[in-house]
Each structure stands twice: as C-alpha cells, then as structure tokens.
Write a protein that binds this DNA or RNA. Structure first.
Length: 225
DNA sequence: CCCTGATTCGC
DNA sequence: GCGAATCAGG
C-alpha cells in the first residue's frame, strides 16, 4: 500500500486525535504499526505520550569524559546477543488488564496547558500560540456543515475524514465502532471544539446545576444547551 | 507476557 | 521514502 493523500490525512488526524499507532494502522489497513509510526515521524508529527520517553534530562551530567563510542551498533547481528543470564526474576508482573487502551474521551488539554492566551483579537476572542493547534489542514472537504444539531441523532455524523479546522473535533463514541463520529458542530474560533465541548474540555465539570460559564469562553454568545 | 512510541538502517 | 527489526519503557 502506498501513502496516498487520503491515507496521510487519516493518519494525521488520528495521530493528532490521540489514536495509537496500532489503531491507526488497523484503521488504514495494509500497513503495520511501525509503518504508521515511521510515516508519522517522516511527516514531522510530534511524539505523543510515549511510554519510553517519560524521562528527560537536560543537564545530562557527564562525569565520564571517556565515553568511547562503539564502532557500529547494528552492522551485524548474527548470534551476538548478550547472554544476559538474569537468573532471578522475583516480582511478578501480573497486571490485570481488562480494558484495551481505547481512550473514550481523549481530553486534549489538561488544566495545566490550557489554551495559552497570547493575544486578544478584535471582538475579544482569544488567540492561541501556533503550537497549540493544528494550523495546516489543507484539505477543505466540500461538505455541508450543519449549523445546529439539536437532535441527538447521528444521521449526519461527522466522520474522521470530515474533520477540518472548522468543525468540532470532539469524539463521540469509541474509535472503531461503526457509529463512531465527531461532533461536527461549528467550532469556537481558536479552539478545536464547539462552544459546548469547549466547556467540557476546558473547565472542571460543575457538579450541580450551578451553571456558570466563567472562565475561558470568550466568544460572543455562549449558548447553553 | 502484553502494550506503547522511537530509532535504526537495509531496501 | 518506506517499514521491519530492534530498542526501551510501562
């Protein structure tokens, strides 16, 4: 399989949407997880939470000036594996894994990295740093947007390929399920979500009916559904 | 064991 | 450019 434009677009969207490489590979079909990762890197997509990169050290204290670098690491690998006796493996790793790693609600921003307000545009809407949202989504699919979707029906569901920077990218349901779709509502300018889901994403949920849209909802008319 | 992403390197 | 093999952490 080759990387067509559509497949690349899907890869990007799913990658940025928080899907794992395995899920993306499975969705695309015909490619392996490694292929997806490799392609993602070649596309310049940033590394999302990777289990291997949790540790990061800037200072990198180098007390050992003598660091002779091994000549070649992977020139050949025929029967050159470290014996690694490892005779004792004490603790058991019985990890009760009952659920697959399917993020039903990949909340994009934690409170720590709320949309950084860099400046305020005319009309009072906030601007974010360029790193906080995807600037380039070239394929503007000729789709008709639904101005309002009062009914909970998913008759006009927004699929992965229908996503753009103009529609709410809040996921509805679980990826892989047949009716998985996205909100598709018109976005709140500067945010990847519509007004309603901005409220979900960017503020703590209010336990009771104390409906208060206090913090970061700079748009004109917050319509509380 | 399973999973994850990162990296390398032959093609 | 592609992706299997490998690495490395959870």
């Amino acid at each position: 399989m080759s990387w067509t434009d559509e497949r690349i677009a899907t890869l990007k969207k799913m990658w940025e949407g928080g899907s794992t490489a395995s899920q993306i590979a499975d969705e695309l079909g015909g490619v392996s997880r490694n292929a997806v990762i490799g392609k993602a890197h070649r596309l310049g997509l940033k590394s999302r939470p990777s289990p291997v990169k949790a540790n990061e050290k800037k200072p990198a204290p180098k007390p050992k000036p003598a660091a002779p670098k091994p000549a070649a690491k992977k020139v050949a690998k025929p029967a050159a594996k470290t014996p690694a006796p490892a005779p004792a493996k004490p603790a058991a790793a019985t990890a009760p894994k009952a659920d697959a790693a399917i993020p039903s609600q990949p909340l994009p921003n934690k409170n720590a990295d709320l949309p950084k307000i860099v400046s305020v545009g005319p009309g009072g809407f906030l601007r974010q740093g360029p790193g906080d949202q995807q600037a380039p989504i070239p394929p503007a699919p000729p789709r008709r947007l639904v101005p309002a979707k009062p009914s909970p029906e998913i008759a006009d569901k927004t699929s992965l390929l229908d996503l753009s920077d103009k529609v709410c990218r809040w996921p509805m349901g679980h990826p892989g399920e047949p009716d998985f779709h996205f909100c598709g509502e018109a976005v709140n300018p500067g945010f990847p979500y519509c007004v309603e889901h901005c409220g979900r994403a960017y503020q703590a949920q209010l336990p009771r009916g104390a409906r208060r849209p206090p913090p970061p909802l700079p748009f004109g008319g917050p319509r509380v559904r």
